[in-house]
Design a binder for these strands. Structure first.
Lengths: 131, 131
DNA sequence: GTATCTGCAAAAGATTTGCAGCAAG
DNA sequence: CTTGCTGCAAATCTTTTGCAGATAC
């Protein structure tokens, strides 16, 4: 099964470029419909899968089971509170050197990585003591 | 709502300690039933949630939507192929220093982090050229 | 023409929730 | 007692699949 460049993939890419942030498949679907693109939800998933395999789109799956899609290297890393779910983006990333190393030592072609921190935010730490 | 130390949490912890690897909630449930522990799947999820909030258990969610649970700091990082799903564990981790730094700069109490790499394994790179 | 893509509806799977009964403090 | 835990079944939500028709090459 060869994979074709399709109109739906282009639509999906266009939205991701315009938004320039991570978004769920469902929201992406809503966004497309809002702009009068006639497309099915299943097709959004299929387009995202294809783009993922090409390394053009990256995915981060939340503990809740929902996945967020974004252009490769456009998503940031996060610090997420396990209690309230609040999430803060992080700028630092000490991983690139390791990524290069792994590319060679494992014969893998790495497209991207995810790095997420989990714990309790300041407020939830306080609530834990006096519930 | 105060949280109580429960028998089900103990059962869950015991299995995690015995197995000493990441496991899904469903498999954990099966494992418990196999050992004649009378417990419901929902209770397994509730126990895991509670332990997660205490920082004793960590979670890594797969792209597929399933979550794997393990004792904190017992899970490793991985290199996962986007095509075939094969996964290789990684030993290196350049993140601890950053974690300490974030603990201070963000007033977060960090329990653990996840770091996952995605791309194509050697075999799938080959198949991509000659499908 | 033939292989691939699409939309829709149905199916699958993981996790969560409602609720009545049980158990701990 | 009163509050929190448990099991079961039902509900929820995201993602996947089946299929007939449309489309690209």
């Amino acid at each position: 099964m060869k994979t074709r460049r399709t109109r739906s993939q282009d639509s999906v890419l266009e939205i991701l470029q315009k938004l320039s942030r991570a978004i769920s498949a469902q929201d992406l679907y809503a966004e497309l419909r809002k702009r009068d693109v006639r497309i099915g939800l299943a097709t959004v998933y299929r387009a995202l899968d294809a783009l993922k395999l090409e390394g053009r789109v990256q995915v981060r799956t939340l503990p809740h089971g929902e996945s967020l899609y974004s252009l490769s290297h456009e998503d940031r890393h996060h610090l997420t509170c396990l209690r309230c779910g609040d999430s803060v983006a992080i700028d630092e990333c000490p991983v690139h050197e390791l990524e290069t190393h792994l590319n060679q030592s494992h014969q893998f072609r790495i497209f991207y990585h995810t790095l997420e921190f989990f714990g309790l935010c300041e407020q939830c730490q306080a609530e834990e003591v006096v519930p």
